[in-house]
Computed example of a mutant assay.
Amino acid sequence: MTAPKQQRRARKIAMSPEEVTAFLQEQRTCRVATNGTNGPHATPLWYLWDGDALWLTSLSRSQRWTDLMADPRIAAVVDAGHDYGELRGVELRGSVEVVGEVPRTGEPHPELERVEQAFADRYTGGHVVVDGRHAWLRLRPEKITSWDFRKLGTA
């Protein structure tokens, strides 16, 4: 796996890799943009960041899934803050890959065991939900862009 491209702009307010990981592990929802036949399609999703990849679970009979099977390129944004001086976020770009069966029925899959449990611990009180409607996608970002306006200080 190659490292994501370095951020070229706004480096003054960029997060360090450790800050990116801490931020992504703290927040709960990302906004995912796909390329559809009718243009961009953006939707919110729960996610899991493992330090190297963004894991997403998606309905396998959704517009998002259809878009990604035709064009696996994706952008995901996680952001936080209300006032200008507290805005921060991370954008991850790359192509997703399907991991496991579609839809997920619970067949043993070594890569998904830790992901599903970590996702369950984060969102469903530790109970792994396998509903036969969702499937797993992994984004190993090709580019990560971050911003933390708190680094601007006060004027």
Score class of each variant (00 low, 15 high):
residue 45 L to Q: 07
residue 102 V to W: 07
residue 94 G to D: 02
residue 19 E to A: 06
residue 137 L to Y: 04
residue 4 P to E: 01
residue 111 E to W: 05
residue 108 P to L: 12
residue 18 E to C: 09
residue 154 T to Q: 14
residue 142 E to R: 06
residue 95 S to G: 09
residue 76 A to E: 03
residue 127 H to I: 15
residue 139 L to D: 01
residue 37 T to I: 13
residue 130 V to P: 03
residue 149 F to N: 13
residue 41 H to N: 12
residue 96 V to S: 05
residue 113 E to I: 09
residue 92 L to F: 02
residue 52 D to M: 08
residue 128 V to E: 07
residue 121 D to H: 06
residue 66 T to H: 14
residue 121 D to Q: 06
residue 11 R to Q: 15
residue 21 T to M: 02
residue 153 G to A: 04
residue 77 V to I: 14
residue 27 Q to A: 12
residue 86 E to P: 00
residue 11 R to H: 08
residue 153 G to Y: 02
residue 130 V to N: 06
residue 20 V to H: 03
residue 24 L to N: 00
residue 139 L to G: 05
residue 145 T to V: 15
residue 92 L to Q: 10
residue 14 A to V: 04
residue 121 D to N: 12
residue 57 T to W: 07
residue 102 V to K: 03
residue 16 S to L: 08
residue 127 H to M: 14
residue 33 A to S: 10
residue 95 S to H: 03
residue 90 V to H: 03
residue 122 R to H: 10
residue 152 L to W: 04
residue 88 R to Q: 11
residue 114 R to E: 15
residue 99 V to F: 01
residue 52 D to P: 04
residue 2 T to V: 09
residue 102 V to L: 08
residue 54 L to I: 10
residue 123 Y to N: 04
residue 34 T to W: 02
residue 21 T to H: 03
residue 111 E to M: 09
residue 18 E to S: 13
residue 85 G to C: 15
residue 135 A to S: 13
residue 13 I to A: 00
residue 133 R to P: 00
residue 125 G to R: 08
residue 75 A to G: 10
residue 78 V to K: 00
residue 4 P to L: 04
residue 56 L to H: 05
residue 39 G to L: 05
residue 12 K to Y: 11
residue 20 V to E: 01
residue 79 D to C: 05
residue 136 W to Q: 01
residue 119 F to S: 02
residue 66 T to L: 15
residue 94 G to A: 12
residue 105 T to K: 13
residue 27 Q to W: 08
residue 8 R to S: 13
residue 153 G to C: 06
residue 126 G to V: 10
residue 62 S to Q: 06
residue 2 T to F: 13
residue 127 H to N: 15
residue 33 A to N: 03
residue 141 P to N: 08
residue 87 L to E: 08
residue 45 L to H: 14
residue 75 A to M: 02
residue 120 A to M: 05
residue 74 I to Q: 00
residue 44 P to D: 11
residue 143 K to F: 11
residue 8 R to Q: 12
residue 126 G to A: 07
residue 72 P to F: 01
residue 63 Q to P: 08
residue 45 L to Y: 06
residue 91 E to K: 14
residue 5 K to S: 12
residue 50 D to S: 08
residue 109 H to C: 13
residue 21 T to A: 12
residue 83 D to P: 10
residue 10 A to I: 13
residue 59 L to S: 10
residue 25 Q to C: 11
residue 103 P to Y: 02
residue 29 T to G: 09
residue 42 A to F: 08
residue 149 F to Y: 14
residue 40 P to Q: 03
residue 62 S to N: 07
residue 75 A to E: 05
residue 37 T to M: 14
residue 64 R to T: 14
residue 62 S to E: 06
residue 70 A to K: 07
residue 20 V to M: 01
residue 153 G to E: 06
residue 131 D to I: 07
residue 127 H to D: 09
residue 61 R to N: 15
residue 1 M to T: 06
residue 18 E to W: 04
residue 50 D to P: 04
residue 25 Q to S: 12
residue 102 V to T: 08
residue 137 L to C: 12
residue 150 R to I: 13
residue 47 Y to V: 07
residue 120 A to C: 07
residue 13 I to R: 03
residue 91 E to S: 15
residue 95 S to W: 05
residue 112 L to A: 00
residue 24 L to R: 03
residue 100 G to N: 01
residue 129 V to G: 13
residue 80 A to K: 00
residue 100 G to E: 00
residue 12 K to E: 13
residue 10 A to K: 15
residue 104 R to Q: 08
residue 35 N to F: 10
residue 100 G to A: 07
residue 134 H to T: 09
residue 101 E to L: 10
